[in-house]
Amino acid sequence: MNQNDTIIEVKDLKINIKIDEGTLTAVRGVNFEIKKGETLGLVGESGCGKSLTSKAILGINDKKCKAEGEIIFDADDLGKVNLLALNPRGKEIRSVRGKQISMIFQEPMVAFSPMYTIGNQINEATLLHITKDKKKAKEISLEVMRKVGIANAEKRYDQYPHEFSGGMLQRALIAMALVCNPKLLIADEPTTALDVTIQAQILELMKELQKDFGMSILFITHDLGTVAKMCDRVAVMYLGKIVESAPAVEIYKNPQHPYTQGLIGSVHKIGTKTQERLFSIEGTVPLALNLPAGCGFYDRCHKRIEGVCNVYAPELVEVGGEHKIACFACTGCKGGECK
């Protein structure tokens, strides 16, 4: 693979959060890269660290969170830079944030300020990053609004967020994210708050826009259905680590890690009324505080090997065809040898 195709590379990202009870290691060494025009799905349940990872890329995490590691981004004017090394309030990161990397959030209702018109808020990004000319900025904003399928854009431009429905608001949010033609779009659960029919519309829209704009997408979700629809590659996260990553088709056809298997098994597929009970993973996600050595999934795993999995922490190992797994039981290598 041509190295120059990589838009962003996350290397050994660790995020610690200081809480009253101690230090919580929410992200424990995450590695991934996204190529040009590619969609990577980051899948996991609440508390697995997927949102923190995405926010670390933009440097918008809470002050209590401390990120370590490297996030190498191929910026237009700066070349390859480590985003984590930049001053979080400095000029450089601001030229990247919002312009070259932008983000859409789960709750479109909260993402907009109720005090300003939608047009005003989309324009803000345009004026900041593209042109200082107000007339021109409005032109650009209107064009993007039309592109994301907001009918009657001129009229909608002057409306306030409360006059928009949830789906329309999400479209407006996407318009705001796309107005600067970003290289990377981070979508944090963009359709979770929406109804199925609207969700389908938004997903299709994102796919179309990806083709037009040629951007890469980091798609964060807990919903395996939307991942199947959207992503080229999928990385499954559990307790702050990527436990399996593979091309989307592969991960659904041939899930290897017990957690991935559990996740896929616990979602019922319509039209297959054969199983009596849904496959379910025992127990709950432990708090990432004072984690024991070994694999984080050990307590809930049905394939665990005593003396190996609870002693050594598995690393991602490639098993062929870009399919990587962090599991001793699957890769057959015993912790001690692999080190």
């Binding site: 199925v196 969700q199 519309q201 989307a248 597929k269």
Partner: peptide, 25 residues
């Protein structure tokens, strides 16, 4: 019919064609 066609299926090989709903509720 539209509702069913919009359900995302957890299988990337199945790409069912969605029957779009016009307008808004």
């Amino acid at each position: 019919e539209s509702l069913l066609s919009a359900v995302p299926i957890a299988d990337p090989t199945v790409q069912n064609e969605r029957i779009p709903l016009e307008g808004e509720i």
